[in-house]
């Protein structure tokens, strides 16, 4: 016997691309959940859970580069690719995010 997990995903428009300054992050609420959205200087978009799993730090206030997001409270770093922590602690959730006609669309 096998169990199949059924997942439904929903797309949410959370704001405009220009609401997130280049290289920074801003937090939006999508479907009752806080999501941090980042726009890197190379134009790419990323979305993660808003609070750091370590101590609840505000990830949108963190610093970024093409590989990682760094939490402002204790400098834990998480990879965009899969949300894993570079120091081996608990990972963060990452979400799909894209731009559609200037709108930020997060898929939860």
């Amino acid at each position: 016997m096998s169990l199949t997990e059924e997942r439904t995903t929903t797309a949410h428009v959370v704001g405009r691309v220009e609401d997130v300054p280049p290289g920074e992050g801003r937090t939006f609420v999508a479907g009752g959940e806080q999501v941090a959205v980042f726009r890197l200087r190379d134009g790419s978009l990323h979305a993660t859970q808003a609070a750091c799993p370590h101590a609840g730090g505000p990830l949108a206030d963190g610093q970024t580069d093409v590989d990682v997001l760094v939490c402002p409270l204790h400098q834990y770093a998480y990879r965009w690719a899969d949300g894993s922590s570079t120091s081996g602690t608990a990972p963060i959730r990452v979400f799909a995010v894209h731009e559609a006609d200037g709108a930020l669309v997060v898929t939860l």
């Binding site: 220009e18 609401d19 997130v20 300054p21 920074e24 992050g25 801003r26 937090t27 939006f28 609420v29 959940e33 806080q34 941090a36 808003a50 609070a51 609840g56 505000p58 990830l59 949108a60 206030d61």
Partner: peptide
């Protein structure tokens, strides 16, 4: 200085 400079980073907390 930037849009949303002082927006909450944890709006539901």
């Amino acid at each position: 200085a930037t849009p949303g400079q002082f927006r909450p980073a944890l709006p539901l907390v």
